[in-house]
Nucleic acid binder design. Structure first.
Length: 271
DNA sequence: CAACGGACCTGCCTGC
DNA sequence: TGCAGGCAGGTCCGTT
């Protein structure tokens, strides 16, 4: 479900309800996520105010005095604010109740996400320390991509989805950015020139920025923090459109598998 | 190192 | 209608 735009949409939706608020209680109904929810998480958070709600890649960081709650939504997770009584649904695994009554509810059918306690500086955590630059960082440039690609035989789509290279480019937006750049997703990363990488870096930023502005992409039942869907799905040019006409040339969109992920492209427009 | 496959889970859709 | 199989927005980890 969540790629960077969905996580950022979630962050923005939640922020006003949690910033400066103290955690009153944490209810963990299912500990077995990607990694077990630490048993002492409720004790770590209780009574502490959220000082900052940051995002690093697709991770969310609820920073409190002395550490942070590190959250990831995996493939199927969501975080939403619940005000008042709302019956629990299946897979509502964790509630974080704030002073004043707002409740942050973590829902994740596949349980690929995580909720971890990180003491001290959260960016020093092993999951975050080795991540590549944010796509909106000054360091994320065509030159950076071009330099990192030298000698790499892997497909360019697999290459740009590696979070150690750059964070936040998931399957949907990798497909969309490569379409906009006119680059065949199967092309070897090391066989693409600096000029094309400059365009690709720009278009990765563009597609993510647009998706954030539209509240993310809603597939199946994704809803953001306020329970509303995202509208970027209407903007998708290739993702999920196998056999449908290319928005540029009218030819059929083709699908292949790359690195065990569905890949969509226009064979006439992408080389 | 780089590249690849498996692993973690549930739900939904398709086809027999 | 039931059931098996394949697929899904992520990404870590172990093996070549």
């Amino acid at each position: 479900m969540p790629e960077l735009p969905e996580v950022e949409t979630t962050r923005r939706g939640i922020e006003p309800f949690v910033l400066g608020r103290a955690v009153e209680a944490v209810a963990v109904r299912q500990r077995q996520l990607r990694w077990p929810v630490p048993e002492d998480l409720p004790d770590r958070l209780r009574g502490k105010a959220i000082l900052r709600l940051a995002r690093r890649g697709k991770y969310l960081l609820f920073v409190v005095e002395g550490g942070a709650l590190l959250a990831h939504l995996g493939m199927s997770g969501s975080l939403r604010i619940v005000l008042g009584d709302e019956p629990l649904k299946k897979h509502d695994h964790v509630d974080i109740v704030f002073a004043g009554g707002a409740c942050l509810r973590y829902h994740d059918p596949r349980r690929f996400g995580c909720l971890l306690w990180v003491p001290g500086d959260p960016l020093a955590h092993p999951l975050l320390a080795e991540l590549g630059p944010e796509p909106f960082d000054a360091g994320f440039t065509g030159e950076y991509l071009h330099a990192a690609a030298q000698g790499r035989a892997t497909a360019v789509k697999t290459f740009i989805m590696d979070s150690h290279l750059v964070v936040g480019v998931g399957n949907i937006y990798a497909n969309e950015a490569l379409f906009r750049a006119g680059i065949d997703p199967r092309r070897a990363a090391g066989r693409i020139g600096a000029g094309r990488y400059a365009e690709l870096a720009r278009l990765i930023r563009e597609v993510l920025q647009q998706a954030i502005a539209q509240g993310g992409t809603t597939l199946r039942d994704f809803v953001n923090a306020s329970g509303k869907p995202g509208y970027f799905q209407q903007t998708l040019a290739v993702y999920g459109r196998e056999g449908l006409p290319c928005v540029l040339c009218g030819g059929p969109i083709r699908s292949v598998r790359l690195g065990q992920r569905s890949t969509f492209y226009c064979p006439r427009c992408q080389h």
